[in-house]
């Protein structure tokens, strides 16, 4: 699959103060974002997510490594014309109105006045800000500014949309609307790279994830493949069976959630477990490969590593 964004062996260290130690933010990070995918960039605080996105957008110069956008150097203006970016907590000149701000960004993006006008009206409508389009932004809430941030990122109809914590500051309804917009953009063919702490948001929107920690990739791939627990199976009962616990193999364990009571068992002992359940009179609704939640997967991958400071 063609990669619209390719990051190779990216290194970046920051000096926290003059003469102080250098903190390694990125340590040889590599990944690709395939066309038409919605990719979540995950990692704990300080993992290097924002630095990665800033390197991609040319806001930070990597110490080593390479960023390619659409097969060109990441700094190329022609490549960046095809990218939309929403920084974490976007800030604007608040004396401007959303419409004037978007016209300014439209000029910087090389848009003509008439095409910008119609595009801006469409986007203000899309993010639910058409009624406030001609008010100065100094009285806007964080959520309203975030919506304007999304509108500016979408202004030049980008093929690749890069979002840093897009739901930050939004109320629950705003978060839902943001997810709907992103899902519809993803379905419409826009490639999205999304950094977020909200694992549920990533799980709902993204089809791929890249997990980074201490500036390195620790896992990446299709979400459904990563979350599939290859060694284990789950057995779902149609209705509770009181005697179903006897005779189960040693690897079997029960769990209960909103979906009902589930038995987790290793693939090798699945036949023995099914036999025991049927003999105890249990009614089996479904047998499937066990799937981790993204949170479980994330904790498993991140829980093994520590911090790194380069003197």
């Amino acid at each position: 699959m063609e990669a619209v964004l390719s990051v190779e062996e990216l290194h970046k260290a920051y000096r926290t103060r003059l003469g102080g130690p250098r903190r390694q933010a990125l340590s040889g990070l590599s990944f690709t974002v395939p066309r038409n995918s919605v990719v979540g960039l995950l990692g704990p605080n300080g993992a290097g997510k924002t630095t990665t996105l800033k390197c991609v957008m040319g806001l930070v110069r990597p110490d080593a490594g390479k960023v390619s956008l659409f097969g060109r150097d990441g700094d190329a203006v022609e490549a960046r014309r095809r990218v939309g970016f929403l920084p974490e907590q976007p800030y604007f000149d608040l004396y401007l109105t959303p419409r004037k701000l978007l016209h300014y960004y439209g000029r910087l993006s090389g848009m003509g006045a008439s095409s910008a006008r119609s595009r801006i009206s469409y986007l203000l409508n899309l993010v639910g800000m058409e009624d406030d389009a001609d008010l100065t932004m100094d009285k806007f809430s964080k959520g309203m500014l975030q919506r304007i941030g999304l509108a500016q990122a979408l202004l030049a109809e980008p093929e690749l949309l890069i979002l840093d914590e897009p739901s930050s500051g939004l109320d629950p309804l705003g978060k839902l609307e943001m997810r709907d917009v992103l899902k519809s953009l993803g379905t419409g063919g826009t490639t999205i790279l999304l950094s977020s702490h909200q694992l549920s948001e990533i799980e709902e929107i993204c089809d791929r994830v890249i997990i980074i920690h201490r500036g390195r990739e620790v896992a990446s791939g299709r979400l459904d493949e990563l979350l599939e627990e290859k060694g284990d199976c789950e057995v779902l009962l149609a209705e509770p069976a009181p005697g179903a616990t006897s005779g189960l193999p040693s690897s079997a364990s029960w769990a209960e959630d909103s979906g009902g009571k589930r038995l987790t068992v290793s693939r090798e002992e699945l036949s023995a477990a099914l036999t025991a359940l049927i003999e105890s009179g249990a009614s089996i609704a479904e047998v499937r490969s066990r799937r981790l939640s993204l949170e479980e997967f994330f904790v498993r991958r991140i829980g093994k590593t520590g911090w790194e400071v380069e003197e």
């Binding site: 960046r80 990218v83 970016f85 920084p87 976007p90 800030y91 604007f92 960004y105 993006s109 030049a156």
Partner: peptide
């Protein structure tokens, strides 16, 4: 300081 540069310089400008 206001971070308005991020929105500006992420556009296709030098």
């Amino acid at each position: 300081g206001r971070r308005t540069l991020y929105n500006t310089l992420s556009r296709p400008v030098r």
